[in-house]
Design a protein around this nucleic acid. Structure first.
Length: 569
RNA sequence: GUCUCCGUAGCUCAGCAGGAUAGAGCGUUCGCCUCCUAAGCGAAAGGCCGGCGGUUCGAAUCCGCCCGGGGACGCCA
C-alpha cells in the first residue's frame, strides 16, 4: 500500500499539473501524507481531500476534485470519484489479487522495512530489582521494551537489549545482614526470592524497634563496596537467585537480553563523569549536595552527588549512557520506564547535552502509565501485588481447561497452554496506548473472547489448519471477487505502514490493534466464503492463497508483540 | 504552588502530524454449527468526544482558560 500510495500521489500530481498548468503544487510526499482512508468502505479505498489546494489553485475544492478526476489515471486504481471536495479512489480487485502471491513470496520479509539498516539501537528495559518479587508492575517495561526491540529488528536495526538490573545500593547491606542474622543457606536455596523477601521484610520490622540494625546494615554495604569476600559472594548469590526467577518468566515470553550490566556495573564509571561535570563548571554545591542547575530550562536542578559525596540515580544513568555510546556507538538509546520518571530523564538528558556529548539527541525516553490493582498502588509491603508467575500460572491453567473442553486430542497440550496463556497476558498488556494508566483486573487479563491474544492465535491456527488441509497447490491464479476478500487484502496491504507507525511512535499497541484488524477481516472472509469447499478448484486455490497471505502477515506480526504462533490450539 | 500526563457508549479503550455520518471489545438482547477449529460470525441497543472560548472552509484531534483524576517536583531508584 505504501508503494500504491506513492503511485497514486504521483498520478494526482500529474493530473494537477495538467489541469492547472503553472500553479504552485505540493510535493509528492505531501500528497502521500494527505491521502487517507475514507470513514466508510462504500466511499472508496483511499481518499484525497482537495481543500488544502484551493488557496494555491484559486478554485473551490469540488472544482479541483472534478478537474483532477478528469485527468487522473493510475495502475491499480479502477475508479476515481468526486464526492464534494474529496476524490475517492477504488482500488481494483486485480491489484489485491496480485498482492497475495507477492506476500507469500516475500514470506518473512513482508512488511519489513530497511530504515534501520546499518544502525544500532540500544534498548534498556525490564530492569527488575534484585531480591524483590517480580510482579505485574514489571511486566509493562518488559513486554513494551521487548516488543520495541522486535519492531526495530524488523525494521533493520541492529538491536542491543540491556537489562539494567537494580543490583546495587544500601538495601543490599540490609539484605546481607538479614541473611546473616536469620537466614540459612538451605532455606534460601529452597525458597528463592520469596525467602529473600521474607528476610528483607523481617529486617524492616526489626529495625523499627532497633535502629542499630540500620547502622550495621550500612556497614555491611560498605564492606560490599570495598570488595569484602564474604559479602561479595552473598551478593552474587542473591543476584543469581533473583535472575533465575526472572529468567523463568523471560523464557516463557521468549525474551533474551544481550547484556545484564546493571547498577553495580557502573559504580567505577561514575567518577569520570563527576570529574567532567566539575571541570566544565556545571556542578554547583547547594545545601551540601552537588547539583546541575537547570532553571534556565524550566526544570528543577539535577542532583549528582548527595551531601555525603555518594552518587545518585542521574549520576549512574549519565555514566551508563556514556559507556553505551562508547561500547555500542548507538544511533538511538531507548529507555522504557514508568512515566513517574519523566522528569528524571528530561533532566539528565539535558545534563548530557550541557556536558557536550553529541549523543544527547539520540536518547529516547519511552514512558508508560501506572499499573494498579483495584485502583491501589502496587506495593510489596502491603501485599497489594500479583506475582508474574502466579498470573502466568492462572492463565495457563485456564487455557488448559478450555483446551480440554474444545480440543481434548490436541498434541503438545502443555506447550500450547503455555503459549496461549502467556499470549493472553502479553496481548492484554500491549493492547492499549502505553501511556495510559491501567487498573489491572484479573478477569480482563484472562479473558479469551473478543480482542484478546487467544482470538489472534485462534485465527492464526485457523489459517494453519486450512493450509495444511489444502495440501499442495501450485501456481494458483488469484482472483478477488467477494467484498470480504478485497477487505482482507486491503487490511494485509497496510502492514508496512503500520510497522512504520509503531516504530515512529514507540507504540507496540499499533501492532496489536492491527493484528485485530487482520483477524476480524480474515474471520469475516472465512464466514462469507467457502475456502476448501469452494465451488471449483480455481476459486479454491485462489482463496487458499489469501489464507496463506494472511498466515504470513500474522506470522510476521505476532512476534512483534512477543506472541508465539502455535499452529494448532 | 509549579510542571506533566489522562478525561470519547454502562465498563475497558481505538481514533488525535485537523477532514466526510465518531468506531471496537466486554456486558445486555436476538440470530447462525448435517459444512474448512463456534476461542468464531451477524444483528439490535447504547454518545452534547469533561466544560467554555479561540484558530480554520472544516476540531474528538491544534491553542487558551476552567473542572475532574493520576504522576513528578533535592539528598530513593
Amino acid at each position: 500500500m505504501k508503494k500504491l500510495k506513492k503511485n497514486i500521489a504521483s498520478s494526482i500530481l500529474r493530473a494537477i499539473n495538467s489541469a492547472f498548468a503553472g500553479a504552485d503544487t505540493p510535493s509528492e510526499a505531501e500528497i502521500v501524507s494527505m491521502l487517507e482512508y475514507p470513514p466508510d468502505e462504500t466511499m472508496g479505498d483511499l481518499a484525497f481531500p482537495c481543500f488544502k489546494l484551493s488557496r494555491a489553485l484559486r478554485k473551490a475544492p469540488p472544482v479541483i476534485a472534478a478537474e483532477v478526476a478528469k485527468a487522473f489515471e493510475c495502475d491499480g486504481v479502477e475508479k476515481c470519484e468526486v464526492a464534494g471536495g474529496y476524490l475517492n479512489f477504488r482500488i481494483s480487485n486485480s491489484y489485491y489479487a496480485a498482492l497475495a502471491p507477492r506476500i507469500i513470496a516475500e514470506g518473512g520479509e513482508y512488511g519489513r522495512s530497511h530504515v534501520g539498516d546499518g544502525k544500532t539501537v540500544v534498548l534498556d528495559y525490564s530492569a527488575p530489582n534484585i531480591c524483590k518479587p517480580f510482579h505485574i508492575g514489571h511486566l509493562a517495561s518488559t513486554v513494551i521494551g521487548h516488543s520495541l526491540k522486535m519492531i526495530h529488528a524488523f525494521s533493520g536495526y541492529n538491536c542491543v537489549g540491556i537489562n539494567h538490573l537494580g543490583d546495587w545500593g544500601t538495601q543490599f547491606g540490609k539484605q546481607i545482614l538479614a541473611y546473616k542474622l536469620w537466614g540459612d543457606k538451605e532455606t534460601v536455596e529452597r525458597g528463592g526470592v520469596d525467602e529473600l523477601v521474607r528476610l528483607y521484610v523481617k529486617f524492616h520490622a526489626e529495625a523499627e524497634n532497633d535502629d542499630s540494625l540500620n547502622t550495621r546494615a550500612r556497614e555491611e554495604f560498605t564492606k560490599l563496596e570495598h570488595g569484602d569476600e564474604e559479602n561479595t559472594a552473598l551478593w552474587r548469590w542473591f543476584v543469581k537467585i533473583s535472575l533465575d526467577e526472572c529468567n523463568r518468566t523471560y523464557d516463557k515470553l521468549g525474551i533474551t537480553f544481550d547484556s545484564y550490566a546493571g547498577e553495580s556495573f557502573y559504580t567505577d564509571k561514575m567518577p569520570e563523569q563527576v570529574e567532567k561535570l566539575k571541570e566544565s563548571g556545571l556542578l554547583k554545591v547547594d545545601n551540601g549536595a552537588s547539583i546541575v542547575d537547570l532553571s534556565e530550562y524550566n526544570m528543577p536542578p539535577c542532583l549528582i552527588l548527595k551531601s555525603d559525596g555518594s552518587t545518585l540515580y542521574p549520576t549512574r544513568d549519565i555514566a551508563a549512557a556514556v559507556y553505551r555510546d562508547r561500547t555500542y556507538h548507538f544511533d538511538k538509546c531507548i529507555y522504557v520506564t514508568a512515566s513517574q520518571q519523566c522528569l528524571h530523564f528530561a533532566q539528565w538528558f539535558k545534563v548530557v547535552e550541557l556536558m557536550g556529548y553529541d549523543f544527547y539527541d539520540k536518547l529516547v525516553h519511552v514512558p508508560y502509565g501506572m499499573v494498579s490493582i483495584d485502583g491501589a498502588k502496587l506495593a510489596t509491603r502491603t501485599g497489594n501485588v500479583i506475582l508474574i508467575r502466579d498470573l502466568i500460572d492462572a492463565a495457563v491453567e485456564k487455557v488448559a481447561a478450555v483446551i480440554d473442553e474444545k480440543n481434548p486430542d490436541l498434541e503438545n497440550r502443555e506447550q500450547v497452554a503455555q503459549d496461549v496463556g502467556v499470549g493472553a497476558i502479553v496481548f492484554h498488556y500491549l493492547l492499549n496506548s502505553r501511556i495510559k494508566d491501567t487498573n489491572f483486573i484479573m478477569d480482563d487479563a484472562l479473558s479469551f473472547d473478543g480482542s484478546t491474544g487467544p482470538y489472534a492465535q485462534y485465527t492464526y491456527a485457523r489459517t494453519c489448519s486450512l493450509i495444511e488441509k489444502a495440501g499442495d497447490i501450485k501456481n494458483a491464479n488469484v482472483t478477488v471477487t467477494e467484498p470480504s476478500e478485497a477487505a482482507l487484502m486491503k487490511t494485509l496491504s497496510r502492514f508496512e505502514e503500520v510497522v512504520d507507525a509503531a516504530l515512529r511512535d514507540y507504540e507496540p499497541s499499533t501492532i496489536t490493534r492491527y493484528i485485530i484488524d487482520v483477524c476480524v477481516a480474515f474471520n469475516r472472509f472465512y464466514q462469507d466464503c467457502k475456502i476448501l469447499g469452494a465451488e471449483n478448484d480455481d476459486v479454491r486455490a485462489s482463496r487458499v492463497s489469501l489464507v496463506k497471505a494472511t498466515n504470513t502477515v500474522l506470522a510476521n506480526a505476532l512476534p512483534l508483540i512477543c506472541m508465539k504462533t502455535p499452529k494448532k490450539i
